[in-house]
Design a protein around this nucleic acid. Structure first.
Lengths: 207, 207
DNA sequence: GTCTATAGGGTGATAGAC
DNA sequence: GTCTATCACCCTATAGAC
């Protein structure tokens, strides 16, 4: 849970975040946000001017949440080896997703919009991410050259890492209804994956 | 592309499929479907009674498309070994997704709705899938017992297989904008994965 | 079957009192 | 800052002519 904000503006933002993240822009009614926040509909426009503006605030926060945890983990642990960083990243990322299970689907849905493609230069977190991805690709290429990793396009490694961490959350509704597992079993499986994914990545790509 | 249907009903269904699959139920206007189909708005209701009913038709077709190719591949190749079936399935599935790149996101989005959870018993393709998944899990458990596979929850194997095939398509917009790869490079990478994913699965789970 | 016109209801946004 | 009341628009669905 994010920190409690009892100001009216904070309540609106929290309600909007909850509903937009779960149901997306189109399926969310401003009336529902107002009701969820326990305030009047007119106040929503008083504080945020429009539904669109409010959505952009939520979008920005969710992107920061989704990418911020990666950046923080990597930046605050420069002393670790590459492999150790990956392990730590997976561990912390799965914790974050267990606390915010709707985030992956939300990110996937906004990534399909035109606005998202333009929102490049003015979001500092996206810029940091760009740099991190570049250095990540660089490290992989060096490890391929030195024979530590198998020769394969770095995007396959990044895709598989992302896939294995994020996809089960994006598809959790599907997994739960189809296989009949409970929320508790799902969480247990995701926690298991913290230890398994690093091993799998090594098995796939190490020489 | 699906087979061309020049009847009015067929034109409406094709237009609805295109727009619903790309943008989902809420973001799609019946007016847009009518325009896309080149027909009058009233005809949409004449043929399909309501937006909701039309969406359900499209949903049913997309679920069939998404699961049907798996079932067909498996059923028509009983003579192959388990590993060979997996290889064939991956190959054909990636081809299907290259032809229908919006399908994964569509399936993920409908899986999050309440209607989808109830739509269990009355869809024959979902019943077939249930049976196939059961036999799949059975085979995996037997292979674990015989020592062929590492001892791990079968859902991890299924999740990783699904993740590696489907996720890059669900996240293709993200991958393309963020890494700057072109549509052609994306397709090339996905085709590469046809041969790579079977190898990766073996590396992860074989003893 | 296909069209035009319009009903009927919901949605985002604002005016104006307090 | 917060509320009530309401506008203006958009959307789905249908009535009714051809």
């Amino acid at each position: 849970m994010a920190k409690m904000d009892i100001s009216t503006e904070g309540k609106i933002k929290a309600a909007a975040k909850k509903l937009f993240t779960k149901n997306g822009f189109e399926a969310t009614r401003t009336r529902d946000i107002a009701e969820e926040a326990g305030i009047n509909l007119a106040l929503l426009n008083y504080y945020f001017r429009s539904k669109q503006k409010l959505f952009e605030v939520v979008m920005r926060e969710n992107v920061t949440l989704f990418l911020g945890s990666i950046l923080e983990t990597i930046n605050k642990n420069q002393h670790l080896t590459f492999d150790e960083k990956i392990e730590l990243l997976i561990d912390q990322y799965i914790d974050m997703l267990l606390a915010n299970p709707d985030l992956p689907f939300f990110i996937l849905s906004i990534s399909r919009t035109e606005e998202f493609k333009k929102d490049d230069s003015d979001n500092p977190i996206l810029q940091s991410m760009k740099l991190m991805r570049a250095s990540f690709m660089q490290t992989i290429l060096a490890d391929i050259q030195s024979g530590k990793l198998k020769p394969v396009h770095p995007l396959h490694i990044i895709s598989n890492l992302m896939s294995m961490i994020v996809f089960p959350f994006a598809a959790s509704a599907l997994l739960k209804t189809r296989t009949g597992i409970s929320d508790e079993e799902f969480e247990k499986l995701m926690l298991e994956r913290k230890k398994l994914i690093p091993v799998w990545i090594k098995a796939m790509f190490d020489n």
